[in-house]
Each structure stands twice: as structure tokens, then as C-alpha cells.
């Protein structure tokens, strides 16, 4: 895979791409399963669909699908569109042409987090204290948990989901509702969760500026402290050798190969941004990583060479979401001012 990471011209002008101004903050972005469409979840209820091909004609903005903020968005693992969740309590399936149908309605609650499992076509979404798994037209509820589900993710094989809440993480077996859930306990409020790409670890970010990682098989855990802010964005590399975290001014990756990160420092590289990394996304295949800053910069890095390039976004608003295309050549970027960007990094 060849990406033009060292192109110095990008520091002045962005790589080839498409930039669209929406007039509402972007809360999430995603590519469709096959990568043909990119979508942005917006604060005015719209889900803005754009062709991933940066040279194709722009599609119109469309009408708001949610009555409020679109809080969560994933590529539909069972189709060519998307699944969105909103603070109107609705979970919607959005077709490639932008038409929406309701999957679930939890009035008075917010559909805040959605995870998708590509191989099985399942999605998991959280509303209030429960998680809902939708697979092949069936929906199952898991919960209620002791507090609102603050994030959730699938296991590697899609057979389980992990839900973060006060006091730790609960892991449910999707196929066997009768099997008692496993609890991974750690005091405090867990606000972000990612299951490792090899299935062995579950990582959370906590309200108290640290991250917590459990070895799923052994149920042993570890804690990494010393962040100046909450770690709200976690991203495992495709080979599960590193866990990237936000809330640092440079790329910060904990090494999970060999004996794991205990007693080792995090690997840090890249240029120090004006602010902190607010969202981080490891590349789906190679050693690259993208980091968005709360000060508006975008940095692309290569963990192998430790080289990086800082791209200046136009308006300096905090970057709120990042998504790599499935083929790894394109990157979608959204910010708090509603700048929606798709860049093509193919050399």
C-alpha cells in the first residue's frame, strides 16, 4: 500500500479531495461497506451522503432524518447504506439513495453509540441503559446495565458485545441470551470502549483521564494513567499490535505485542499540535494513522518510520470525527463547524 505521507506540499494545501460546508457540527462519519459512499452525521438531524469518488458530482443535502442531533453513524454491514442513531430516540437504516426506514424507536432516550460487525452483518446500538443487537431483521435487547451504556463494540468474531458503563464493562453473548453476562469491574465511569482487532483485549477510556485494558481470556486488567484529559477516542491497529489514544498532543500508541504494555512507555511520535488529539483512527490495513486535533489540525502519521505530516484544515474548529475508507485510500474528516472533508491519499 502506498500513501503519499511525506508530501510536503500538503502542509500548504490539502491533498486532492472534496470539502463541503454543512451548517451544523459533524458528530460522526463513516464509509459504506463497499466504500462507494461517505456519510456525515450532523447536528441538524441530517445525514449528509457524498460520493466517495472525489471527482463525482456532489449529491444534494437532503432533508433532516432525525428530529435533533444525529449522534451515531456506521456503514450498514448488511447493505450499501448506513445506520444512524439520534437524540430523537430513533435508530434508522439509510439506503444508498438517502431514504430512511426506522429500525427502532426508544422515545425519551438517545441512540448514542452504534457498532457494526462486517462479517456477520450485525449492528449493536445503545439507548439508555440497554444495548440492542440487530441482525437479519431480528432485534435483541441486552440490559439494562447499572447506568447508561457509554460505548459498545463487537468481539472480533461478532459473537459477543462489550458495553461500557459505571463500574466497568459487561460482555454479552449475542446468540445465547440465557448465558449470564461477564463483568469486568473497575470503579468509576467508563466513557469509551474498543475491543481489540484480535479479540484479546477490551480497552476503555475513563472519566478520570486514564485508560483501562482487560485481557478477555484471563480477565486480568491494567491501567495507563497520566493523561491530561479524558480519553474519548481509542483505535486499535489492524494487526492489534498498538492501541492509539486521544488526549495527547502527539500520536500515542501502547504496544500490545509480546508481553503487552505493562512497564513499557507508550510510543509517541509526530509533530506536537497546537492542541490535543481529539479523535484518532488507525488505518484499516497498514501502519498509518490519522489524528484530528481539538485545535483543528489534521495529522497523518506512519508508525514504522515515525514520520508525519500536519494538514491545516481551513477553519480551525475542533475535529470531531474521522473515518478511513475500507480500501484505506481515502479519509473522511468532520469538524465542529460542519466542514466535511474527504481526501484521497493515493499516490
Amino acid at each position: 500500500m502506498k500513501l503519499d505521507f511525506s508530501n510536503p506540499a500538503w502542509q500548504q494545501t490539502l491533498p486532492p479531495g472534496r470539502s463541503v460546508a454543512a451548517d451544523a457540527p459533524a458528530a460522526a462519519c463513516a464509509f459504506s461497506k463497499e466504500g462507494a459512499i461517505v456519510a456525515f452525521a450532523l447536528g441538524d438531524g441530517r445525514v449528509r451522503l457524498l460520493p466517495a469518488d472525489i471527482n463525482a458530482a456532489e449529491t444534494p443535502a437532503g432533508e433532516p432524518l432525525h428530529n435533533g442531533v444525529v449522534l451515531a453513524l456506521v456503514g450498514d454491514p448488511a447493505g450499501d447504506g448506513f445506520v444512524s442513531g439520534g437524540d430523537d430516540g430513533r435508530l434508522l437504516r439509510i439506503a444508498a439513495d438517502g431514504t430512511a426506514s426506522e429500525i427502532a424507536n426508544q422515545k425519551g432516550k438517545w441512540f448514542e453509540h452504534i457498532a457494526a460487525h462486517r462479517a456477520t452483518g450485525a449492528i449493536a446500538a445503545s439507548a439508555g441503559k440497554s444495548a440492542f443487537v440487530v441482525k437479519g431483521g431480528e432485534m435483541k435487547e441486552f440490559g439494562p446495565h447499572e447506568s447508561t451504556v457509554a460505548d459498545l463494540d463487537f468481539s472480533k468474531d461478532g459473537s459477543r458485545i462489550a458495553c461500557a458503563h459505571y463500574g466497568g464493562v459487561t460482555v454479552w453473548s449475542i446468540g445465547q441470551v440465557t448465558v449470564a453476562p461477564r463483568k469486568f469491574a473497575w470503579r468509576g465511569s467508563h466513557v469509551a470502549l474498543k475491543w481489540s482487532t484480535d479479540g484479546k483485549f477490551i480497552a476503555t477510556g475513563t472519566q478520570e483521564n486514564d485508560i483501562h485494558v482487560w485481557r478477555v481470556a484471563q480477565a486480568t486488567d491494567m491501567r495507563m494513567q497520566g493523561y491530561p484529559a479524558k480519553v474519548k477516542s481509542l483505535s486499535w491497529t489492524a494487526d492489534a499490535r498498538f492501541l492509539y489514544t486521544s488526549a495527547q498532543p502527539v500520536f500515542t500508541a501502547w504496544p500490545f505485542s509480546g508481553k503487552g504494555p505493562e512497564g513499557k512507555p507508550a510510543l509517541q511520535f509526530g509533530e506536537e499540535g497546537a492542541g490535543m488529539i481529539s479523535v484518532v483512527a488507525a488505518h484499516p490495513a497498514a501502519e498509518f494513522v490519522a489524528g484530528g486535533y481539538d485545535s483543528g489540525e489534521l495529522q497523518l502519521g506512519d508508525i514504522k518510520t515515525r514520520r508525519s505530516v500536519v494538514l491545516k484544515m481551513a477553519d480551525g474548529s475542533a475535529i470531531t470525527c474521522l473515518a478511513w475508507s475500507p480500501d484505506g485510500y481515502k479519509l473522511a474528516v468532520g469538524n465542529d463547524a460542519g466542514t466535511l472533508l474527504v481526501i484521497d491519499l493515493r499516490r
Partner: peptide, 8 residues
């Protein structure tokens, strides 16, 4: 945090 994502 959710309310702050609103357009209005």
C-alpha cells in the same frame, strides 16, 4: 456533550 452538537 450531546446538546452541544446541536445546530441550534
Amino acid at each position: 456533550e450531546g446538546l452541544m452538537k446541536r445546530k441550534d
